[in-house]
Computed example of a mutant assay.
Amino acid sequence: MKKTMTIRFEYHEVQASKRLEAFATEKLEGLFNKFSMIIRADVFFKLENTTSDETGKICSIRLSVPGPRLFAEVNQDDFMNSISETINNLDTQLTKKKGKMTNF
C-alpha cells in the first residue's frame, strides 16, 4: 500500500484559491517523493499590510514528521514565490533531519 500525505490549507485575510492549492500540492508532493517520512502538511496563506511592494504575501508550512515538527515561513510579493521559497527552506530542513536519522 502506498503511503500518502495529508495536506490542510488555511487562509487568513486571503480568498481561497484552487490555483494556489494545486501549486502548493505539486511542490509538497515533490518533497514527499523525496522524503516519505512526511505525514501531514499544514499550509497557511496570510496577507500582511506592508509599505514594500516586495512583501505582504506570506506562506507558512508546518510539516508533521517523526520527532519535532518542521516549520518554514516566507514573505514575498507573490504567493507562488512564497510557496516555492518555503518549500526550498523545508527541503533543506528535511535533508538535515534525514542525515541525522540512522534508520531511514
Rank of each mutant, 00 (worst) to 15 (best):
Y11M: 07
H12S: 12
K27C: 04
E21M: 08
L94F: 12
G67C: 04
I7Y: 08
K97G: 06
M1L: 07
T51K: 13
N33V: 03
S84Q: 13
M37P: 04
T92R: 13
M37F: 08
N75S: 10
S82L: 06
F45I: 09
N88H: 11
I58C: 07
K57E: 12
L63H: 05
N103C: 06
D42C: 00
M80E: 15
E48I: 08
F45Q: 04
M5E: 09
S82W: 08
K2N: 11
R62L: 13
A22H: 11
K57N: 11
L90I: 05
L94Q: 08
L47W: 06
N75D: 15
M101R: 14
L20T: 01
T4N: 13
I83Q: 02
N81A: 11
D91K: 13
D77P: 00
T95K: 14
S17I: 03
F45E: 07
T86E: 09
T6E: 15
M101F: 12
I61Y: 09
T25N: 05
G99D: 15
S60L: 09
F32P: 04
Y11C: 00
T4A: 08
K18T: 09
S17D: 11
E29W: 07
T86G: 06
G30C: 01
I38D: 01
F35K: 03
G99R: 13
H12L: 13
D77G: 11
H12R: 13
Q76L: 05
D78V: 04
E85K: 09
F32Y: 14
L28D: 03
M5W: 01
D77N: 15
E13P: 03
Y11R: 00
T6S: 11
D78K: 02
T6H: 14
A41H: 04
E13Q: 14
N33M: 14
T6I: 14
R69A: 10
T4L: 12
T6L: 13
F9A: 01
I87D: 00
K46Y: 07
P68K: 14
N103A: 10
L70R: 07
M37G: 05
I7M: 07
I58P: 05
K96Q: 14
E26A: 04
K18P: 02
E21K: 01
R62I: 15
N89I: 10
I39C: 08
G99C: 00
K34A: 15
S82G: 11
S36H: 12
F35Q: 02
G30R: 08
E29Q: 14
F44Y: 13
R62W: 09
N89S: 13
E10W: 02
T6W: 02
M1N: 10
S84F: 10
F35T: 03
M5F: 05
